[in-house]
């Protein structure tokens, strides 16, 4: 019998405690143990990025990450984007600009978008292109995705200007414009993001 390890992590704002085999991949843990089916498996080599989720606000490949490596970390999946029955501005922009076709790479692409826009709330088209090159999409040829990311940047910065709290309410912690404004590195932001997430849960 294989040893199992107890892990405790925060996923989309909820604390989860489970026992897992050390070899269990994070993507399988998320999908099969937590039922978060928005994380998809693409190439299983860390190339295509379809399995991308956020760990402490930064994108990782969940198909080449063990669940035990997420012990004590904070994970955000696509299920953490929409809240209170409302789309996150990134989701809204992907719908508006048809930044998807089959939808299989879309959760990962949107999480990468959240990261791109946190690091640079008003990127140029070329910056977006380079930014999403970490994620393969086989359907769209990327053009409408880039349109969608730029649209999200526009609506999120407009939202941040008019009402900084809107985005906190709508999105998961890591997408918060407030957090983005304060974050360059990843360290200090984590606590704030966790706070955002917990506030969101309470509200």
């Amino acid at each position: 019998m294989v040893d199992r390890h107890r892990i405790e992590l925060v996923v989309n704002g909820e604390t989860e405690t489970q026992e897992v085999e050390p070899r269990r991949l994070l993507v399988d843990f998320l999908r099969e143990d937590l039922g978060l089916l928005g994380a998809h498996i693409g190439c299983e080599h860390g190339v295509c990025g379809t399995c991308t989720v956020l760990m402490n606000g930064e994108t990782i490949r969940s198909c080449i990450t063990f669940a035990v490596q997420a012990d004590g970390q904070e994970i955000t999946t696509v299920e953490g984007l929409a809240s209170n029955g409302k789309f996150h501005p990134v989701q809204e922009a992907f719908w508006e600009k048809q930044g998807l076709q089959c939808g299989y790479c879309t959760p990962a692409m949107m999480l990468r978008t959240v990261e791109i826009l946190r690091e640079n709330p008003s990127p140029t088209r070329d910056q977006v292109r380079e930014g999403i090159a970490s994620q393969l999409c086989r359907c769209t040829g990327y053009q409408y995705i880039i349109d969608a990311v730029l649209e999200a940047a526009r609506t999120m910065s407009a939202g941040a200007e008019t009402d900084g709290k809107v985005l906190v309410k709508q999105g998961a912690g890591p997408s918060s414009a407030e957090a983005a404004a304060q974050t360059q590195g990843s360290g200090p932001a984590l606590e704030e993001e966790a706070e955002d997430a917990s506030r969101q849960k309470e509200s």
Partner: peptide, 19 residues
């Protein structure tokens, strides 16, 4: 028009075969 099938995919509820 915006595609009618998109919301479920945007929510990560695509209901693909492995789901």
């Amino acid at each position: 028009i915006r595609r009618v099938e998109d919301p479920r995919f945007l929510l990560g509820r695509g209901a693909y075969v492995d789901d």
